[in-house]
Design a protein around this nucleic acid. Structure first.
Length: 631
RNA sequence: GGCGGUGUAGCUCAGCUGGUCAGAGCAUGCGGCUCAUAUCCGCAGUGUCCGGGGUUCAAGUCCCUGCACCGCCA
């Protein structure tokens, strides 16, 4: 039987445009898919978009669109991006697809009939501020521990999945399969969750509250909520319930996710599958976050890095290489353009690019522009050849373990060895002595064949660059250049025409100042009318009193005069000392819906901007009237 | 407040189940080569492995505690 491999990315929620996190997950999945294809596996690679839910319904309403039209638009952004990143997914699934809707309903019906879905209700203390129910034991003196307010007693009827029934089974399954969730830190995290009793999972919303979802087959007054819809895409995508594709790929399914959705994938999903009588997925692979310049990337701070910007600026291969080389799978990494450029210049331009350039130049010049024939290798050649032949097993092990940085490290160590080999053999000296032509040819053949090995090994990560490299070696059709072709030495054919060409990975110039010169307003929100703007009531206010909010790091409670006295809460305690604020005039939104922060009700929001050291308040030119309108 | 994570060379970070683990890359300095994208090769470093206790024949590596930063619950 042919070996098979099935990899999935999460289906991305269509409430935001793709960012570097989406790109990373999807590129990793693509690298894995390409890797297994090169090993001769039958592979299937699934990605797509998650489109139901109240957030989408709300956002669509705000944008004046139907939820479907809104989802179409954002889903289209993802679908259009992947080809530009050379993503080779076999299918793009949408939760609004007919077959998916049907499958979800069939599954709901089956689980319902089995008795694992029941109708029940929440009944308990509901804190409006927290938007959640509390158990009596969680309350402090009958009050919400966060807001210090009396919660309401509420009742809401819904359908529940009997997840608790499978808790023991899941624990045993994870214990018996050390690789089920990896890396280990996340496996431990899931086991820690499971030490506490699992509650049943609420899987519906009444249509009175939400209609943008899949209707429950056994009660058309409800739609299913989030996970019972989204997770099932992994089954729909390969043709569940029937078919050979499902039989082939489900047993080898590898999910790829970021750590934020560990709980649904590590707990909800396996128990859902168990309830369905399906063996769990093969493995869950969890990666960390990209942090941008120390802090987590944040839309509000305008530090979202758009994958396409970088790709356009530095090339797709460099981008993919950087992402895989820089991040240790499972851990968080820092992203910086500076680091990117350093990586690009040192690894791609200096090490690999220059190796290729010097090799092709010499071979062209000394060997008539063709791959030279080689004599039997000498001892010093064998050092390089032996290393080359050991490379694939080593890289393969790293790839299988998701240690992409290690795989690339191994390959680059070999790049270094090849550069070293050239220095030691000095082809330029050999070329001056006609008697040493044989030796010269053997040395250059060895170098060119080493470059072929490197090209094949990096091709999952840098598909375009690898193909270009092979073309330079006179290999027009890369289809035969799979991992089998680097299990033995000497596959590169003498006589192949060589192409020197332009630098494959040119060095790039980059300074921080230069980055600042590219002045373009980023993340501009959709256009609004004057009437829209007029709905925001901005006023001048004077700070009368300021004191830190207890138990909070940065919240400050301000008593202000906006023509009337008010209390507002602001997250600025790290940037301003409360006593320095008293007497200052600030700008405040006065018609914002009041919100409770750490138990203090805030009747307004002050205006400020970010700078490197923290917040900066909006100020006025001279003294103005308290309560004056700001236009 | 609760839960979790992180703290290792100037910088970015590897270091699995305790015993060549004190490392890599980049940056820095010096030397070599000239085929090459001012590239490549060689050599040279620097570290109280966050602080304090403890377990052990032996601890960045385990336990306790303190500090700092981060994430999630929010």
């Amino acid at each position: 039987m042919k070996k098979a491999f099935y990899v999935t990315t999460p289906i991305y929620y269509v409430n935001a445009s793709p960012h570097i996190g989406h790109a990373y997950t999807t590129i990793v999945a693509d690298v894995m898919a390409r890797f297994y294809r090169l090993l001769g596996y039958e592979t299937f690679f699934l990605t797509g978009t998650d489109e139901h839910g109240d957030k989408i319904a709300e956002a669509a309403a705000k944008a004046g669109e139907t939820p479907k039209a809104y989802a179409d638009r954002y889903s289209g952004q993802f679908r259009a991006l992947w080809p530009e990143l050379s993503i080779t997914n076999d299918h793009f699934i949408r939760t609004t697809d007919d077959d998916h809707v049907k499958t979800v309903q069939n599954i709901l019906q089956a689980v319902y009939e089995k008795g694992d879905i029941y109708f029940g209700h929440y009944e308990g203390f509901y804190c409006v501020g927290c938007e959640r129910f509390y158990r009596e034991s969680e309350l402090a003196d009958g009050k919400c521990p966060d807001h210090q307010t009396e919660p309401e007693y509420r009742k809401e009827s819904n359908y529940f999945f009997r997840m608790s029934r499978y808790q023991d089974w899941l624990m045993t399954h994870i214990r018996d399969n050390p690789d089920f969730i990896r890396p280990e830190r996340y496996r431990n995290e899931v086991l820690a969750f499971l030490r506490e009793p699992l509650e049943d999972l609420c899987i519906s919303r009444p249509k009175t509250r939400l209609t943008w979802g899949i209707t429950l087959p056994f009660d058309d007054k409800y739609v299913t909520y989030v996970w019972f819809d989204a997770l099932i895409n992994y089954l729909t995508g390969i043709g569940f319930p029937g078919g050979s594709r499902f039989d082939t790929f489900w047993p080898v399914c590898e999910h790829l996710i970021a750590k934020d959705i560990l709980k649904p994938h590590g707990i909800y999903w396996p128990t859902m599958l168990k309830a369905l009588g399906i063996t769990p997925y093969h493995r869950l692979n969890v990666h960390g976050y990209w942090n941008i310049d120390e802090g987590k990337m944040s839309k509000s701070r305008g530090t979202v890095i758009k994958p396409l910007d970088l790709k356009d600026k530095y090339g797709l291969d460099a981008f993919r290489y950087y992402l895989l080389r820089e991040m240790v799978f499972g851990l968080d990494s820092n992203f910086s353009e500076e680091g990117f450029v350093l990586r690009l210049n040192s690894d791609l331009a200096n090490d690999l690019g220059n190796l290729v350039s010097r090799s092709l130049t010499m071979a062209s010049r000394y060997c008539d522009g063709k791959v030279p024939p080689a004599s039997a290798p000498a001892d010093e050649d064998h050092i390089l050849i032996d290393r080359a032949l050991k490379l694939l097993p080593e890289v393969e092990e790293s790839f299988r373990g998701l240690q992409f940085h290690k795989a690339l490290l191994s390959i680059w160590e070999f790049v270094g060895m090849t550069n070293k080999y050239i220095v030691a053999q000095e082809p330029w000296t050999l070329s001056k002595d006609p008697d040493k032509k044989d030796r010269l040819q053997t040395v250059l053949y060895t170098v060119l064949e080493a470059i072929r090995f490197i090209s094949v090994l990096v091709s999952p990560v840098m598909p375009d660059g690898a193909a270009a490299l092979l073309r330079r070696l006179g290999i027009q059709d890369p289809s035969g250049q799979d991992f089998e072709s680097i299990r033995s030495w000497g596959v590169l054919e003498p006589g192949n025409p060589l192409t020197v060409g332009e630098a494959l990975f040119p060095r790039v110039q980059w300074t921080k100042k230069e980055e600042e010169k590219v002045r373009k307003l980023k993340d501009v929100k959709p256009e609004i009318s004057l009437e829209d703007f007029a709905r925001v009531d901005l006023r001048v206010a004077r700070v009368l009193e300021a004191e830190p909010v207890p138990r909070s790091d940065k919240l400050v409670k301000l008593k202000i005069d906006v023509g009337e006295e008010r209390t507002i809460v602001a997250g600025m305690g790290k940037d301003y000392r409360p006593e320095d604020l008293v007497g200052r005039q600030i700008a405040v939104v006065v018609n914002l819906k009041p919100a409770k922060l750490m138990g203090v009700e805030s009747h307004g929001m002050l205006l400020a901007t970010d700078r490197e050291e923290g917040l900066a308040l909006v100020a006025f030119d001279g003294d103005v009237r308290d309560g004056a309108k700001i236009r």
